[in-house]
Design a protein around this nucleic acid. Structure first.
Length: 117
DNA sequence: ACTTTGACGACTG
DNA sequence: GCAGTCGCCAAAG
């Protein structure tokens, strides 16, 4: 059913499910998309998204790079884009520290379903 | 069909 | 904490 999805479309589907005010990681998105080893491709797909789609279609800002200590961080290389991502996240109520890191224990997305308070 | 490219991640020194 | 390596693998040229 609707297997039109090219590889990257799967990532977009997962990312669209991330609730406002929550964040996830590339690896996490990849895992929910079917394979935890596609983390790099998530980032690649999002970079491509920048050119082919409108940002509003997929909440790319909620996808961060994995960091130790249950943290996630802005992993975007373009400083302008990184600043934008930070701004968008803060606008959603996500607390981003000075180094662009977010506590997953507090804002991390638990998964597509298992939200259940 | 081969090579290059990555908004990654885990590990090493 | 930071820089370098390696493993992973789909898309684009």
């Amino acid at each position: 059913v609707a297997e039109f999805a090219s590889g990257w479309e799967r990532f977009y589907r997962v990312i669209r499910k991330i609730p406002r005010g929550r964040v996830s990681t590339y690896a996490q998105v990849a895992a929910f998309a079917g394979n935890p080893r596609w983390a790099r491709h998530v980032g690649f797909a999002l970079a491509a998204l920048k050119e082919t789609r409108t940002p509003t279609d997929v909440p790319w800002q909620r996808v961060l790079g994995a960091r130790p200590r249950g943290m996630a961080g802005i992993s975007i290389r373009d400083s302008v884009g990184a600043a934008l991502q930070r701004k968008l996240l803060e606008r959603e109520g996500v607390d981003v520290d000075a180094r662009g890191r977010v506590d997953l224990g507090q804002f991390g997305w638990r998964g597509p379903r298992v939200q259940r308070r």
